[in-house]
Design a protein around this nucleic acid. Sequence first.
DNA 1: GCGACAG
DNA 2: ATCTTGTCGC
Length: 251
Amino acid sequence: MARCVIWGTTTISLPDCFYRFMRIEDYKTIAPEDAVQLQRSLRACISITALGREVATVGGADISYNRGSGLMHAAMVVLELPGLRPVAYSLASDETSFPYIPGLLAFREMPALMKAWSQLRAKPDVLMLDGHGLAHPRRMGIATHFGIEADQPTIGCAKNILTGTHGELGVRKGEQADLMDGEEKVGIALRSRTNVNPVYVSPGHRCSFEDAYRIVMQSLTKYKLPRTTRLAHRWANMLRRGEAEPGYTEV
DNA sequence: GCGACAG
DNA sequence: ATCTTGTCGC
């Protein structure tokens, strides 16, 4: 749909690609209908390719906030890949008025995430976000959306399905089943821990399904969630509770 | 029309 | 997302 804007004394309509030039800051006040149009517009920018270089660092990102509040607390961590040792943290808080709407998560969380991202000196080779990548009705989950805006390889790792279905998968850690949206594969249901409900992994941007599976597997320890997610979650909570200060820290 | 619905 | 105690099962 074209969008009409006032330009001087005349009204003109802009094509869909207009939405690609929206600033992240504008997400805070965008209308949900426009947010959906931006996702449709951004879809042409998705790149699902194999991670080029060897992955030496993996990042984790998460958001924490009090229910009913628009103050978002973002945390990003960077871990070395064999070993999962933390090497850097970035913490940032940011206010938004965009609500949580299934399918539009990025518009609520991305401003704060981008703030934390900007502070991060050492960018990870691939960043894992809490939420989906391609496993989204318009293939534009927060991992994909963020990856495009930051021009960064990303992976989505979610605890629940937003769209799609999958068959049974073995109960052992590492077993998987394709997550299908109709005839299209959009992700993987992955058993991240034996006898525990699976997590849902999907490529975000500049990453393949195989890469996504491998990186998530390499980020698992003894818990259901990858260490990336767990650490980011912990730091975001500490920031929210005032137990940690915003800023960038290298370990 | 009805139900589902990341965080 | 967050608020919370105990409890069932490997």
